[in-house]
Design a protein around this nucleic acid. Sequence first.
DNA 1: CATGAATGAGTGTTCATTCAT
DNA 2: AATGAATGAACACTCATTCAT
Lengths: 194, 194, 194, 194
Amino acid sequence: MQIPDENKRKKIMEAASALFATRPFHKVLLTDVAAEAGVGKGTLYIYFKDKDDLYRSVVRAGFRDVIERIRQQLKEREEMPQTQLRNAIGEVVRYAYGNPDIFRLLREAHAKADDTAHCASVRQELATMFEEIIRAGVAKGVFHDPHPELSARFIPGFVRSAFIYGDNNYDTATLESHIMRFVLAGLQAPVLDK
Amino acid sequence: MQIPDENKRKKIMEAASALFATRPFHKVLLTDVAAEAGVGKGTLYIYFKDKDDLYRSVVRAGFRDVIERIRQQLKEREEMPQTQLRNAIGEVVRYAYGNPDIFRLLREAHAKADDTAHCASVRQELATMFEEIIRAGVAKGVFHDPHPELSARFIPGFVRSAFIYGDNNYDTATLESHIMRFVLAGLQAPVLDK
Amino acid sequence: MQIPDENKRKKIMEAASALFATRPFHKVLLTDVAAEAGVGKGTLYIYFKDKDDLYRSVVRAGFRDVIERIRQQLKEREEMPQTQLRNAIGEVVRYAYGNPDIFRLLREAHAKADDTAHCASVRQELATMFEEIIRAGVAKGVFHDPHPELSARFIPGFVRSAFIYGDNNYDTATLESHIMRFVLAGLQAPVLDK
Amino acid sequence: MQIPDENKRKKIMEAASALFATRPFHKVLLTDVAAEAGVGKGTLYIYFKDKDDLYRSVVRAGFRDVIERIRQQLKEREEMPQTQLRNAIGEVVRYAYGNPDIFRLLREAHAKADDTAHCASVRQELATMFEEIIRAGVAKGVFHDPHPELSARFIPGFVRSAFIYGDNNYDTATLESHIMRFVLAGLQAPVLDK
DNA sequence: CATGAATGAGTGTTCATTCAT
DNA sequence: AATGAATGAACACTCATTCAT
């Protein structure tokens, strides 16, 4: 079992991901990460510069997944903005359900200053995708929105809001439709001139 | 010139608040808190049980202010749910503007299990107030909402979403009205039966 | 026993000195230093930046003693260069006898680049003092020496040479006079023109 | 283009020699030695038992050269003790000039107890040769020396003393003759009865 | 032979907490 | 009450050494 490469990196990230999501950063021991990943402690330092780097990698990787999946959808099918929005939101909701731990990571800004930046860039990317969908809808006249970039930021916030409370008893469908309710209503409301 | 005591407690909390908001929990050193507050390290332990207690106190205190102010408004004037909602949201937005650090604290769930609970209880309290306003509106027939408790959670999330991104260039009025746009539209949309 | 100061620093340096002299740098555990000094491990870091700093301090302090004692002698009594030299050498020899461990430290150049410099500066200082004595003798016509700075460097080397071998069975008097034999003979030999 | 083996052993020793001379034992990483030698880390263990063995080999090899050359001289030509001494010292000085790094290694006594012994044995061997020359001179009546073994130890010390200081601006001839000045003067001075 | 990925015992260092003053 | 020197449990990280390829 001497595969010299990314296989092991992946195993470590999975172990770390599970652990970081379970407890706060400073309670995650690298010893545990190593044990959980089935590798030696020193091995962690072959693939990651230090604990912070490992943490950052886990967060980034987690989100890259959702983002990638949404991007695929947008490319593959030419849909109405409403549908695109629904699909994208569904994607985020389902991801949050499936990986509650990783998703929860977004709310924390650990580590070094530039880590926050890294985290932010992932967040930004997600928001930007929603913003593009909204702008497309505005262009087509199906959405009205004086501040698409602000609205875009609200959307992942909905999901997060739903998850940050401990007693999470909603199924994905309910949550998804309740979010859509606000999103669509808000985006379809007429813009009132001031 | 050492004004006896409660003054000192306040100075500590201010220092801690600034620090906790700036960096993740485990990077806030009590040495720094003490230095920033202009007191000895040991003094911290006179006013707070331990680091977690200090953290909790900071978060709670911050939110108690907004919550209290909103509660006052609800009691003092008998208004329409829409107006109550607008006022309450305005309160949160303005608070977030004035205390970006403290507000940002909500995003983390640190340390001991019961700390999370503490944090949650503050959050819960805020959400509950919004939930009551919504339910009142539903009762009066001005709002439609199949999941008021979920909607209530969304509201502080709007504010947070707006603030978590670094490039915050919206004035309170713009932000407030954009949030209201979504909230009111969502709450006034007809409930579609499934 | 809560003297807040240099007393403890001294205790640590003594313990470290004994340990560093006994075994190579990387085999000296700070745990042992702390135990030997009768303080907590963390205390070391109050008085010294890190292991290297502690090491450096030990070396420097050791030599400062001899240097200071020799300097005193030079000031206090106005003697002939030969006598000054004999006294100074005697000082070094006796010190080496009394603190074989610390003296041995000079031969090692551990730690950071600038540490070597520190070490060197102590060595330099000792050599400079010998050089001054020699130059004074040359000025008075009792010594002949085409390279006083080189001769000055030889002198601590004599002592070191005597000590670097394990089977050290010479008493201070013998060693001292044997060194003086070479030093005086060398310094009084006529300078041959080339 | 991998010339089989002994060549590789040599490359490793050269790399190690350069590194050990540059920094203290515990700061020389085998990774660096391997990189510098252009071989894999594991290769080091084919040619050397462990880090200590590598170190020892470097020191020993370096000195074996000088010792061997001096021994040759002593055998080949039947000379006066003074000349033998001058030649031997010249040999050491020139060697030190040509291999300042290796020569500097002598000053440290690292690692395991028996390593010190190894180091010592090389030193001893050199000293013994000088001692023999001196004793021969004493026998012939050209030298006077109450402690030939002590004098013998001084000689390599002269060279070392000259080299341990950074600002080494003496040419071999100057250094050699200055050392000889002390050595001959010291060895030819009459023995004073106590 | 050669390699370098993997290892984990071993240690330096940190920092919340205590307590003598 | 206030302090900050002292503490040491807890951890991140290093690096000599091994071994599968």
